[in-house]
Design a protein around this nucleic acid. Sequence first.
DNA 1: TGACATATACGCGATTTGCACATAAGTAAA
DNA 2: TTTACTTATGTGCAAATCGCGTATATGTCA
Lengths: 244, 244
Amino acid sequence: MDEVAFLENYDPAAYERPSVTVDLILMSVVDGAPAVLLTRRDRHPFAGAWALPGGFVGIGESLDEAAHRILIEKARMSDAYVEQLYTFGAVDRDPRTRIISVAYFALLPADRFTAALKSAPELALAELTVPWSGETGGPVEACIGNGNPLQLAFDHGEMLGLAMRRLRGKLDYSGIAFALLPERFTLRALQDIYEAILDTKLNKPAFRRRMLDRGWLEATGERETGASFRPAELYRYRKAEGER
Amino acid sequence: MDEVAFLENYDPAAYERPSVTVDLILMSVVDGAPAVLLTRRDRHPFAGAWALPGGFVGIGESLDEAAHRILIEKARMSDAYVEQLYTFGAVDRDPRTRIISVAYFALLPADRFTAALKSAPELALAELTVPWSGETGGPVEACIGNGNPLQLAFDHGEMLGLAMRRLRGKLDYSGIAFALLPERFTLRALQDIYEAILDTKLNKPAFRRRMLDRGWLEATGERETGASFRPAELYRYRKAEGER
DNA sequence: TGACATATACGCGATTTGCACATAAGTAAA
DNA sequence: TTTACTTATGTGCAAATCGCGTATATGTCA
């Protein structure tokens, strides 16, 4: 039976369908290290383990809409840069029933988390440690404070690893770093983001040159305040043509 | 209600669930141009239009397994390089019912299509024209022979555009081009693949140097046959560490 | 006013890239 | 057998880029 005929004769009630969820990898850079928002599970399965905020996709709701709804309802965040990451569809990824999960990742500046963390006690911001270099890929570890690695529910560890890989890969060609900064920022702050994500030290003059030559930055004429030394100039992100 | 509680109390029968399909973007490079395998629809909706081979994901089957099954059953191909592309979840993307589709893309050398095209009359190989440059992104046109652009069913035109963008993006850092070549190939053939996908002319000595310096190629010592001029050396792809 | 810390700019060698051109090695015709 | 022809393969060099040390500028604070 070919595809066309099958689809035409398809009776929606006749076949068992998987459930579809969206999981959100809400990342930031906090104190020079990548971090992710997790919620602590208090029930079976994976009770006590940490999971990504997520939820079911409504029948009248697109995947992108579901991701934004979960961003607001479950992660308690307002708008953010959101992008689809990957869809996880192993048969046994949830021990209860067949669930396919579309992972999205979202980026926000660190200071945008404080309100959510106060209002929702089950939420925590975990620091990520990446045990591989470059874009090799593989699992990553999530820790709170200086504690031991957290136990992650389902295949959420795999999701985090993939998100870090994607983040590293898109960093130098896609303005993605600016989603992690406030509207005005210094070149040093931008470099800190790069160094935290790539987990390397970068050469300052070369970094400056590259960023300024790229044409993404717009000098505001203003300078940072509060520094006890020469204040740096504040820049603004000038979106590329196709962007957002 | 938070995510954990919701999932725990979730009754699979209580909520209407979307169907999940896999669509396959089976690409190649034919006569110096990117090409894709399409099937002609003979029923409503989009009767007469062209669609990607696809099918429903079984309840006991992972997404990757479904993609491989569709590769064999619907596209009539044996093994190929297969990679997940993106998941399309607009509410009205199928006029009949809510269907979420996970798009996979697969790559094969041109000569592997001949058997399938002969045995299945509904299949055709359409040449792609990319009206944007670089990795800008956007829709692409599919034509058969020198005819007019084909009408594509559902959001399959969008899928094709995304596949071309991904292909261009991954070309220089990921051995993906070798999936489009036979096991032994000349440097000229490799360059032809690059030029077809990027839609640009490349400088020959520079291309040679880059490829050889990368360490992906292994000289076989053999030479191509049948040329009426100096035959080029045949190379083999030496997979990078993490690959496949 | 001067010490201090960081921002910002400059200079230079090493590496990569684009490109023209020279040389090599096959086939096919004279 | 020789020579013309066509493409493969290699080389040399200018231009652009990158890494990195160092010099200068400009704020704060004692």
